[in-house]
Simulated scan of single mutants.
Amino acid sequence: MKSVRGLSRRSVRRRTGRVLVEGPQGVREAVRFAPEHIVDLYVTTEAAHRYAEFVDPAREAGVLVHETSDEVLAAMCDADTPQGTAAVVDWSPAGLGSVLDTGPRLLVLLTNVRDPGNLGTVIRGADAAGADAVLVSEASVDVTSPKVVRSTAGSLFHLPVVTGLDIDETLAALAAAGIRRLAADGAGESSIDDSDLTGPHVWVMGNEAWGLEPQTRAACDEVVRVPIHGHAESLNLAMATTICLYASARQQRA
């Protein structure tokens, strides 16, 4: 119980290279896409029957499945209601070089993102839009945080996520790889409705409160805004990112 609960601390996650996946959605996707990386799967007796669709395949794949009580599971998990199941999974970020070697056409680069729910939701949205990878700056919230992992709803195991990036170096590497850098900003001179999104590009997204740093915005090839037709002051970061990614996906698949 102590070792699993310890994964709520960043220092423990860094030392062990493990993350805590809580809830049926995340655990199901870990079983489907990364069963060889699951160290232990914990499930209550009731949940073992309810979620047999992935608990039984986990056992068949040789995953160590431990049946436990609701109280013990709650004591191990970060979430108030872990919904009967959790898993400890070996996870490591992808490398920027390996992502660029695949010839990506759609990426998102997150700078100074501080809210775990936003980061997790962006990863989930990028997965849904068919993005090739999510890139995360060193100044952003830790991707392995239990809150981030929960918010991805299993998408953490679907696409590469690169972490700890220096923004200036990353923008330079993307340019060298022939990837257009689009800064998403409400003050952008061009609208997303009029932008050519057919070629390889990366959406560069800023902090929830202050947006992009001026030097980061200036280093991009184009500054693009998402038009607001109503009276809302702005869009939530995860919402704006998903809109941008889907606009790109729509053009690239046309």
Rank of each mutant, 00 (worst) to 15 (best):
211 G>W: 07
123 I>A: 14
121 T>G: 10
249 A>T: 07
204 V>A: 08
201 H>F: 10
65 V>L: 02
160 P>N: 06
162 V>P: 07
96 L>Q: 03
246 Y>G: 10
149 V>F: 10
76 M>L: 02
139 A>T: 15
114 R>I: 09
128 A>V: 11
128 A>G: 11
53 E>A: 14
149 V>E: 11
119 L>F: 06
109 L>W: 07
218 A>Q: 13
220 C>K: 03
2 K>Q: 15
48 A>S: 11
112 N>T: 03
229 H>K: 00
99 V>D: 08
19 V>S: 10
159 L>S: 03
63 V>D: 04
178 G>H: 02
104 P>F: 03
165 L>Q: 10
201 H>E: 10
105 R>Q: 06
201 H>P: 00
106 L>Q: 13
190 S>T: 15
212 L>R: 09
91 W>T: 01
246 Y>S: 08
9 R>C: 12
145 S>V: 13
202 V>R: 06
101 D>S: 03
36 E>D: 15
135 L>R: 09
135 L>P: 09
94 A>M: 00
33 F>G: 01
194 D>V: 09
58 A>Q: 07
79 A>Y: 01
93 P>K: 06
245 L>T: 11
252 Q>S: 01
181 R>D: 07
182 L>N: 08
138 E>H: 14
151 S>Y: 04
65 V>H: 08
224 V>C: 05
202 V>N: 08
44 T>W: 08
156 L>F: 08
212 L>T: 05
166 D>E: 13
184 A>T: 14
37 H>Y: 13
254 A>F: 00
110 L>I: 07
209 A>K: 15
209 A>W: 14
197 L>E: 11
18 R>L: 06
149 V>W: 12
37 H>Q: 15
251 Q>R: 14
231 H>G: 11
74 A>D: 02
107 L>P: 06
109 L>M: 10
162 V>R: 05
47 A>L: 12
184 A>P: 01
39 V>E: 14
68 T>I: 06
111 T>V: 15
55 V>T: 00
173 A>C: 02
130 G>K: 00
24 P>E: 06
16 T>L: 11
227 P>S: 01
201 H>Y: 01
31 V>F: 08
220 C>G: 02
136 V>E: 05
171 L>G: 07
17 G>I: 13
217 R>T: 05
198 T>P: 07
9 R>M: 14
200 P>T: 06
32 R>E: 15
71 E>G: 08
83 Q>G: 02
31 V>R: 10
20 L>R: 08
197 L>C: 08
228 I>M: 09
39 V>K: 07
143 V>M: 15
180 R>C: 11
50 R>Y: 12
104 P>K: 00
7 L>Q: 04
70 D>F: 00
226 V>W: 07
249 A>N: 01
235 L>T: 13
39 V>D: 13
201 H>C: 12
73 L>M: 05
70 D>M: 09
185 D>S: 10
140 S>A: 11
231 H>A: 14
142 D>L: 08
135 L>D: 10
78 D>L: 12
118 N>M: 03
71 E>Q: 12
70 D>Y: 09
165 L>F: 09
131 A>Y: 04
214 P>L: 00
150 R>K: 09
87 A>G: 05
156 L>D: 04
247 A>D: 12
115 D>G: 06
235 L>Q: 12
12 V>K: 09
164 G>S: 15
